[in-house]
Design a protein around this nucleic acid. Sequence first.
DNA 1: AATGAATGAGGATTCATTCAT
DNA 2: CATGAATGAATCCTCATTCAT
Lengths: 232, 232, 232, 232
Amino acid sequence: MGDSRFAAPAAAAPAHAKRERRKQARPGELLDAALELFVEKGFAATRSEEVAARAGVSKGTLFLYFPSKEELFKAVVRENISGRFPEWNQAFEHFEGTTAEMVRNCLRIWWERVGTSKASGIGKLIMSEARNFPDLAAFCQQELVEPCEQLICRILQRGIERGEFRPVDLQYTAYNIMGAMVFLINMKHSLGACLPLDQQLDPERFIASQAEILLHGLRVRCDEPAGGCPRP
Amino acid sequence: MGDSRFAAPAAAAPAHAKRERRKQARPGELLDAALELFVEKGFAATRSEEVAARAGVSKGTLFLYFPSKEELFKAVVRENISGRFPEWNQAFEHFEGTTAEMVRNCLRIWWERVGTSKASGIGKLIMSEARNFPDLAAFCQQELVEPCEQLICRILQRGIERGEFRPVDLQYTAYNIMGAMVFLINMKHSLGACLPLDQQLDPERFIASQAEILLHGLRVRCDEPAGGCPRP
Amino acid sequence: MGDSRFAAPAAAAPAHAKRERRKQARPGELLDAALELFVEKGFAATRSEEVAARAGVSKGTLFLYFPSKEELFKAVVRENISGRFPEWNQAFEHFEGTTAEMVRNCLRIWWERVGTSKASGIGKLIMSEARNFPDLAAFCQQELVEPCEQLICRILQRGIERGEFRPVDLQYTAYNIMGAMVFLINMKHSLGACLPLDQQLDPERFIASQAEILLHGLRVRCDEPAGGCPRP
Amino acid sequence: MGDSRFAAPAAAAPAHAKRERRKQARPGELLDAALELFVEKGFAATRSEEVAARAGVSKGTLFLYFPSKEELFKAVVRENISGRFPEWNQAFEHFEGTTAEMVRNCLRIWWERVGTSKASGIGKLIMSEARNFPDLAAFCQQELVEPCEQLICRILQRGIERGEFRPVDLQYTAYNIMGAMVFLINMKHSLGACLPLDQQLDPERFIASQAEILLHGLRVRCDEPAGGCPRP
DNA sequence: AATGAATGAGGATTCATTCAT
DNA sequence: CATGAATGAATCCTCATTCAT
């Protein structure tokens, strides 16, 4: 993610090389700094100067790249949401194993790729600021929530079709997983961030346990192990 | 909720009765107004004057009751968290039915009593502001998260002890329920509040489906009716 | 002029009397301070805080009365232009003497009433800022330039009709008088303000001499006393 | 005007010829751009970058030629005032015709040479900024106003001496013409610039009519045509 | 007790000026 | 020489808080 943003021309001019490289990197550095601070303190409570300072530049420079604090915020959100779902969908298109495995994988990969990265904060950020930026809320709903919901629904559907899962309300079952994700994100960036380390929850264990809870809730027969036995 | 706060003397002086009643009610009205606005826009983006206006008083009056915006915020949080759990715990102390029924009841009652009230916003509010008010975060952890977690754990424990539920990781299973609550609250006060009505999720259906998924996963045997069969 | 602006209700409430009186006076005081400073330094080079300071209030107070520096500017212009012409027109409606006397009176009264007041600066101000505030320019053209032009034309017309003046190009003759006014205003507020006192021009003498040049040029016969002889 | 400023060596080195020519021309191009913009928007409201852009160079280059915006401003004024009067004075030294003709010529030539050029804006500029640059004001008074006044006075003197004009207050009569010039300049660069074309005054006609008004005011006998009859 | 006019510290934003390339 | 990225002082404006009425 973010690797391709503001992509510099492959071959930079030999002169101005250093400055040019800085210039190419600036927006990304500012977005990263802004993301961190907005997640930490919220949009209104973050001073533009802090963002600049954390990105290692001065106040004025920030406004060279983003015309206003508000536009910076929008850029932060857009940048950190930008379509990761197409590749994800594909990843699961050709999956061969059991659907239970898909569910477990899905959560594990999400945690590795998103949850442990700075981008995980975007979730908390949006929840906090959605009502102050309604157009961004709509954007997130379309680009983040709905694709996520659909991906999960497709996985659940596959499990049901293959007889691994009992038939359930797809949408609201997807919300079960999404609720777990939201909970984890919030524990990481809100309350949890204020807790002493030994009281914080263990993300790996959390991910694993939530998957198992769901899979148990989906099993066809109770004496089977969670994840069901695919039809012969 | 809120019924007992700043409890007025049972019998008001007959003279000045109305004014007296207003005066007694002021702090509560301000807290309500503040809660609404803080949930809507966040702490920093809410102007004290707006709070006063929504409570129907003037700017100056707000500061008669709360020494600063920050203290107002803390009062809002404390007010809306303050020990509802003792009574809740009791409510479940003497419960007679199946544990599955307890779980369903617990969620349903929570939704009715808290979820549909203004106080539901406190959850979103804390998630947004926790890191700006670490002492409040600790307070919430103690007064809100832990009691909630414990209450759920006790219910789950009961189910396991009575053979209704298979043995599970109590804490992380509790988190599954809490995740659902958090998700619901957030859909109500953040993203969901920006969605057209027909796209918003149905809270009753959400509550019911989350309970069923969990309970199905907890059942000891699938041929038993949902919620397991209490031991003879 | 300006005496009636933001007119306070004749009888102020007995309570809050002092503050109320201040409040009523504030906008006028701010407008006066702003006019002075804008004339002195120009719009862009005047800091809002200076305006506030000269009006004896703090920065914040200024914005209590005018939503922005730009609105303050517009108010200053409108305030100092607002229809003084109707009464002027009337003043000359019923004039009995020679038209030469009218011309002299007109200039003399203008100088006394406007030229020596702060409002005289408005002319310089508009010339300086017209292109930055095109809508104000249009307003001034309508409310200031055109009425002035028309008033002078009517006077000249009277002189011609009564045989006191030779027939002339009304409009461009009016401009000659207006040019004198503009010159005088500019000498007072621009270059002249930077000159040592003994080099500054004498307004009375200026007014008188401009009138005499014009009137001499307008006379029908030179052996008549200046100002021509009304037809028998 | 501008022809002799920063005069380049008559023969440029053959190599780098073009670049050299550019380099020599730079300051002049910057001064022209600056003049235009300062006249249009005023000193404070003009951004240095705009000046550079209009001159077709970059921000940095501007400061290569002028150490500060303020110095640029002073250079603009000096450049556009620089002694044209000596030659003008001479031009009229050996004039043969009637003095009325001199007056008419003087205005016509001024309009052609100055009024229609960019340099005409300098008048408006100085009026607007005099008080912010008192030393420039003094400079203009000496180099612009006084020479102008003196030139006109000498012309009037000649007319009087030759019996073409009646005796008048030389200085204040000179102001009559100067007022007309100021008025015309202001109509061109301030209010007039905001007016629809069909409402703008006609400079040729204005010049002609102002001359006639003055000459009528100077005539010795009213039954003579303006301009009087030179003594035999 | 209640008001709302006044304050001024604080934060977003602009822009003259510098300097590495 | 020329550039334009970077800077930070300066300025507009907001809003929590005070206090005279």
